[in-house]
Design a protein around this nucleic acid. Structure first.
Lengths: 120, 120
DNA sequence: CAGTATCCAGGCCGATACTG
DNA sequence: CAGTATCGGCCTGGATACTG
């Protein structure tokens, strides 16, 4: 049992899972792994994401120390987001998950025609 | 955009994320990576998990092809769970997540006092 | 011992509207 | 352009009870 930030976790991987638990966080981190983005740019990159959700999850990621929010005091406001070093270390793991997911998807159509064994 | 099993995903990693999205799945896979377990054994290994939740998530994992459920037609019923090859391939990734999580917790010494807490 | 169905609470997510 | 607040729906997860 791990206690962290007043919450209890069953293993350290659940801490990491919670960091990216939001619906859009993986995608946000993925985009930011390429380069810095402004708020509006990220919003355009994620069709389906609402303004509120993006702001919410960006704040989470900032609080978790995975991204940095840079505010430029200009009119109109300009805010840029970039990965922290910690965030960058998470990206390869998400990439591994991505590879697994892709492989997983790939492996399914092959199961229909190839019937080695009857499955109930 | 990826379509898979009548759902839409923003990237392949979200497919993988969904495979372990349940609250106990990571822990289940973690235990099964050691060796085969019976239902009741798993339940004991996961304090806090309810009978129903364990059954539910085990079924999910079975449907997703990550674990195998072996039913022994004896009285009383005996059911054993073990990882599939696909499940085994997921474990190292979860391990990486675990390492990241542990490292993450470590990097917040001020916030992870791990002080004594009331435990019933 | 193992599994399922039902009911219910809480959290996540989305739409909208408002501020600076 | 960027962010916040509120309201409401949906889905996840938990308690209980019942079956085999």
């Amino acid at each position: 049992m791990i206690e962290f930030r007043d919450k209890k976790y069953r293993c350290a991987s659940e801490v990491a899972m919670e960091l990216v638990s939001g619906k859009w966080k993986v995608l946000i981190l993925s985009h930011l792994s390429e380069h810095t983005f402004r708020f509006g740019e990220l919003l355009k990159l994620m069709p389906g994401a609402t303004h509120k959700m993006l702001a919410e999850q960006l704040r989470d990621l900032e609080c978790d120390g995975l991204i940095i929010r840079s505010v430029y005091p200009v009119i109109p406001p300009k805010v840029e987001y970039e990965l922290t070093d910690r965030g960058m270390r998470l990206v390869p793991i998400l990439k591994a998950l991505c590879d697994f997911g892709a492989d997983y998807i790939d492996s399914f159509p092959a199961q229909s025609p190839v019937m080695e064994e009857e499955q109930a």
